[in-house]
C-alpha cells in the first residue's frame, strides 16, 4: 500500500518574547536571545505526526537557515519526525519571502514524491503567512490555509479532506494531492519530546545539510538578488500619545477616580 510522504517546512526564529530593547543605543538586543523553532510550526509537526500514526508514511522536515538551526531540527526529531534537511548556504542570506519560497519549493522538488506539504500558518518573528501560498504557486499545487485537521486521506484516489476554521465557520474541503497546507495556529498542541527520539538525532544522524551545490539554483533567483523587496530604512515606531495618568492607592478611591475621568471622556455606556 502507498504511504504518504509528508514534508513540513519550519523556521528557526529569534524568540521574540525574549528580545530586549536598548534605550541608550536605540537598537534591539539580539545577542543572547535564544532562537527557537517557530511555535506555530510545532502545530504543523504535530498534525504530521497524527497523520503518520493513522496512515503510516514518512515525515521530512525542511528548514532554510544558518547552521545553528540544527538545534531546532534535533528538537523536532525529538518529536518523532523521520528526516530533517537543513538548507544552508551564504548565498541564501537576505532572502525575502519570494526568494525564500523559491528555495524551499526547489528543495521540495528535489525530495521527490511528496503528498502533503505542511507549514505553520505564520511565524512569530514576521507573521506574514506568505510562504505556504508562495510555495504552492512555485510548485503549481493547490493550497489551503487555516487547516485544523486531516479528516480523510485517500492516497489511491489522490485526494484529502481537510477541515479548516474561519472567523465564523468551519469548512471542509476535498483537495487533490499533492497539496500545500497552512496549519492553523494553536490547532495541534505539540507532544513532549521523547528522550529515545532525541538520542536518534545523535546515533542515526537524520539531519542532512543541503547547500546550493546540491540545489544548483541560479544566483539571480535567490538571496538578496532574488528578493524584489528591500528594507530601505528602520525607524522608531511613533507612540500614540496617551495621557498616562496613574493612580496608586486604595482600590475604592482608585475606581472613583477612574470613573470620574471616564465620564469626562464620555466613554462610558
Amino acid at each position: 500500500m502507498k504511504r504518504p510522504r509528508i514534508v513540513v517546512g519550519i523556521k528557526w526564529v529569534p524568540n521574540t518574547q525574549a528580545v530586549r530593547f536598548d534605550p541608550k543605543t536605540g537598537t534591539l538586543i539580539r545577542e543572547g536571545v535564544p532562537s527557537i523553532v517557530n511555535p506555530h510550526d510545532l502545530d504543523a509537526i504535530e498534525l504530521a505526526l497524527k497523520t503518520r500514526e493513522k496512515y503510516g508514511g514518512e515525515i521530512i522536515v525542511v528548514t532554510m537557515a544558518p547552521p545553528g538551526a540544527e538545534e531546532g531540527l534535533r528538537h523536532v526529531i525529538g518529536m518523532g519526525v523521520d528526516r530533517a534537511i537543513l538548507v544552508s548556504d551564504r548565498v541564501f542570506a537576505g532572502s525575502d519571502t519570494l526568494a525564500t519560497s523559491y528555495t524551499l519549493a526547489k528543495t521540495i522538488e528535489r525530495i521527490g514524491r511528496v503528498d502533503l506539504v505542511f507549514f505553520g500558518q505564520e511565524t512569530i518573528d514576521s507573521s506574514t503567512a506568505h510562504i505556504p501560498a508562495q510555495v504552492a504557486s512555485w510548485l503549481d499545487l493547490p493550497y489551503i490555509y487555516y487547516v485544523e485537521s486531516i479528516e480523510k486521506l485517500e492516497l489511491k484516489e489522490n485526494k484529502v479532506v481537510v477541515k479548516r476554521k474561519l472567523e465564523d465557520r468551519y469548512e471542509w474541503y476535498e483537495v487533490e494531492l499533492p497539496v500545500v497546507i497552512g496549519v492553523a495556529m494553536h490547532s495541534n498542541p505539540p507532544r513532549p519530546i521523547s528522550l529515545t527520539n532525541k538520542l536518534r538525532a545523535v546515533t542515526e544522524k537524520p539531519i542532512e545539510v543541503w547547500t546550493n551545490k546540491q540545489l544548483g539554483l541560479d544566483p539571480r533567483c535567490i538571496g538578496l538578488r532574488g528578493s524584489p523587496t528591500i528594507v530601505s530604512k528602520v525607524t522608531w515606531q511613533p507612540e500614540i500619545p496617551r495621557k498616562r495618568k496613574i493612580y496608586q492607592g486604595n482600590p475604592k478611591e482608585a475606581v472613583k477616580w477612574l470613573i470620574k475621568h471616564l465620564e469626562e471622556e464620555k466613554v462610558l455606556p
Partner: peptide, 14 residues
C-alpha cells in the same frame, strides 16, 4: 513593524 513592534521598517520594491 518588524518583529519587536517597537521599530518600523520601510520596505520598498525598486
Amino acid at each position: 513593524p518588524p518583529f519587536a513592534a517597537i521599530l518600523l521598517a520601510y520596505i520598498k520594491t525598486p
